[in-house]
Design a protein around this nucleic acid. Sequence first.
DNA 1: GTCTATAGTTTGATAGAC
DNA 2: GTCTATCAAACTATAGAC
Lengths: 193, 193
Amino acid sequence: MRAKQEVGTRERIVRATSRLMQRHGYEGTGLKDISREAQATLGSVYHFFPGGKVELAVEAIGHGDHEFAGLLRTVLEREDDPAAAMTACARELAAGMRDSDWMDGCPVTTAALESARRFPPVREAAERAFENWHGIVRDKLVRSGFPDDVAGDLAHTVVSTFEGAEMTAQIMRSTTPLDVAGTHLARLVDSYR
Amino acid sequence: MRAKQEVGTRERIVRATSRLMQRHGYEGTGLKDISREAQATLGSVYHFFPGGKVELAVEAIGHGDHEFAGLLRTVLEREDDPAAAMTACARELAAGMRDSDWMDGCPVTTAALESARRFPPVREAAERAFENWHGIVRDKLVRSGFPDDVAGDLAHTVVSTFEGAEMTAQIMRSTTPLDVAGTHLARLVDSYR
DNA sequence: GTCTATAGTTTGATAGAC
DNA sequence: GTCTATCAAACTATAGAC
C-alpha cells in the first residue's frame, strides 16, 4: 500500500502551478517559481509540458476545476434541502477564504481573466470549468424537483454569485459578501418552490 | 471653449493604464505598452508617477471605480422601480460586454485579484471601489423604501452577482449569465417588498 | 527523467540632455 | 515636461550532459 502523499513529479508541477496562479495569476507566476515550489527542475517542467506556460496553465485550470467541483458536489450532496445547500456552500467557501488569510480565491478566474484574450486555450479551459460547475448545481436542483429550465437558470446565478462573492470577499478581506450571498441564494431558490 | 477630447498627458496615461489592465491585468501590462497606448514617453510616465507601476495601478483602479460608478448611478436613476433597475443594469453590462467582443470586463477586478497580495495599495484601491459601488446600490434601495439593513445586504449581493456574472459572461462569451442574473436580482429585490 | 547552463528577449526603473 | 539611452534583473525557452 502506497502512502498517498507520494505523488509524481508531473502531478507536483500541476499542483504548484494551480496554487501559484490562483494567487498571482498567469503573468504573475514564473516558471522558475513553479519549478521551485514543485521541487522539480526547469528541465523536468519542460519534459512534461513541452507546450510551455500555456500548456501548464490549461492543466492547472483543469486541476482547479476538478478541485472546486469536488467541494461543490460534496457540500450539495450533504444537504438534502437545496436552499440549505446554498448556505452550506457559502459557509464552506467563506471558511476556506478566511483560513487561507484571503489568499486562495477561485482557482480558475484569477489566471483566466487576464489571459483569456491572449491565449485562447486558457479561456477554453476556464469555460469548461464554468460549464462543469453549472452542470453540478443544475443537476442538484433537478433532483430536488425543479423543472429543467428553472434549474438551469438558477444554476447560472448560483455560480455567478458565488464567484462574485468570493472575489469581493477576497478584496474586502471579509466573509460578509459570502455570508449574505448564501442567504439570498437560499431565498431565491425557495421562491421557485 | 475647449474641445473635450483634448486631455492632458497625465490623464491619457491613466486612461491607457486602466484600459490595458482591464484587459491584461497588472502583471500582463507593461510600462512600455502604457506609454505607447497613451502616446507619451516613458520619461513622462515616471514624471507624473514617480511611484512607478504600483502608483499607476492605484490611479487606474480609481479611474475604473469612477467609470463604473457613473454607469451604475445613471442606470439606477433612470429606472424608478428598483427591480426594473436591476434588469436595466444587467442589460447595460451585457451590451458593453458584447460590444467590446468580450474584451472589457470589470475595470478593477482583473488587475486587483492578481496583485492584491503583493501590492497592498492596489488591494486597498479595489476595496474603495467595491465600497463605493455598494453604497450607490444601497442608497438607491433605501430611497425606494427598503429598511437600511435589508438594503445594505441586498446591495452586497447585487454587486457580487453583477461582478460574478460579468466575469462568467466574459469567459463564456455569452450574455446569458448577465441576462439571467438581472432577472433573478429583480426577483430577489421584489421578494422583500 | 533529471539537471545545469545559457541564449535571447523583455521588464521596471533611472540618468541626464534638451 | 519631454525625450533617448541604458542598466540590472527577470523572463520563457532550449541544448545537451548525465
